[in-house]
Design a protein around this nucleic acid. Structure first.
Lengths: 248, 248
DNA sequence: ACCGCGCGTTCGGCAATACCGAACCGCACT
DNA sequence: AGTGCGGTTCGGTATTGCCGAACGCGCGGT
């Protein structure tokens, strides 16, 4: 692989840093974080402001992400073929299961949510498209890890609830189970009271390119801790349908 | 204003071009569009691929937007203060009016949708956050134009339906009306059968920083072509509440 | 009231940097 | 086979954007 352009890489690093927290960052902070002189950073920031990728708070002088990025991000959704093909099936899945439906892909060690259908008759939810879920503590993530051809580098297994699988060995046996069953469950391992189910979506060559699943209250999906298998078949049906659609 | 960094500006231009249509673009196409040598573009593209802003189709070699941008875009939503403050009020507005609620800002001659609450009891809608609405053919846009301190350069007034205001003079009198009334309506000017209402959101200095509104079927919001004024007050109440909130 | 620190910003010289154009390779269509 | 069009590579060149020091400002401690 060849060389890359320094200033563009640095610009990307700045954007990632600005996106890493809701806080606005100043030139000095960025300079310290990236180990670069202030003047250098200022030049890149000035350019990023001009193209709308970054905005500067007129009061404090600090920098934050710009609105153009929101538009670029939503344009990505139009381009993404998996999402385009899967949208209708996700709607159907949400309708049948009466729970929220989710589609995700593996991205930089996280599950990137590329589609999210709200639970029917419950509109007071915030949309999660574009956010990350942890791979080890979500059903989507387990599916994606289990079928990951590259054996993704595991980030530290951060615990979220008392049920989170935080031990690498345990996670590996769980992934083995996912591979043999062909679907994954997550029982209050990310949020207390919430349960999720997911299954893999494959492309025409049989490679797993994403996962689809549902997520909802434990009382509905798994009363007394036992999953209702009908939900599992809803999810697997949807996953198979999309896979078939992609093969066409 | 000082100089800007060439390569970063070019990288941004590439991203904008890739976002302008759902089609994937090749090096040669980009080179022609931007008037740059192929080699130069390839270098920038290679870098953009490395940082995840762009993906390359392994089959065709063509380029498309990358998943990292989706994540950056959603991070913008966390940073955006207007949206953070307005979310709850938008939920309330959607609940009271039983229609979909929208929040938008002026951005590069368009209305950028920064929040969107689905109509209650109707989840089969696609989320429009991050997309553009035309300024002259949407209620949000009319509000933003009417109160725009910079007198935004008007893009050509493209007609969408037979009701679209396509004449600059007529639009100006309409904006005058918006300024005197303090709110805007849009009667099937963007989509047949749909009507919208919007009102301005101001910051602590009284400058309009966004607009909030609702949108729905003409039968419900304006039967026989006459707006139900209760909807107007819902919208204006929400706008005033957010304005008050921002002043705090 | 003052001083000093930290901030964002400016500037100009230097050399490293990233442009550029021509050549390369593979594919598809003629 | 040939030809044109894709994406990619490469090395010389001078343009480019880095860098570090200096500036102006606002704030908080003294």
């Amino acid at each position: 692989m060849g060389e890359t352009i320094q200033s563009v890489e640095r610009a990307a690093a700045i954007l990632r840093l600005l996106a890493s927290g809701p806080r606005q960052l100043g030139v000095a902070e960025l300079a310290r974080a990236l180990g670069l002189p202030k003047g250098t950073l200022h030049g890149i920031l000035r350019t990023l402001v001009r193209v709308g990728f970054v905005e500067q708070d007129p009061a404090t002088g600090k920098y934050r992400l710009g609105a153009t990025l929101l538009h670029l991000g939503s344009s990505y959704l139009d381009v993404n073929e998996l999402r385009t093909r899967a949208i209708n099936w996700a709607d159907a899945l949400a309708g049948r299961s009466r729970e929220s439906a989710w589609i995700g892909t593996l991205h930089e060690g996280h599950v990137l949510v590329i589609h999210h259908v709200f639970r029917p008759d419950d509109s007071m939810q915030t949309l999660q498209v574009g956010t990350y879920l942890p791979t080890h503590a979500s059903a989507l993530g387990k599916v994606l890890l289990a079928y990951d051809p590259y054996g993704e580098t595991l980030v530290p297994l951060q615990p979220h609830t008392k049920n989170t699988i935080a031990d690498p060995g345990l996670l590996e046996t769980e992934l083995e189970l996912v591979r043999t069953r062909g679907w994954a469950a997550e029982m209050e391992e990310l949020t207390e009271g919430e349960v999720a189910i997911a299954a893999p979506i494959k492309d025409s060559r049989g490679i797993v390119v994403g996962a689809i699943g549902i997520r909802g209250a434990v009382e509905r999906l798994a009363p007394e801790g036992v999953l209702h298998m009908e939900f599992v078949s809803y999810v697997r049906d949807a996953a198979r349908a999309i896979t078939r659609d992609l093969a066409r």
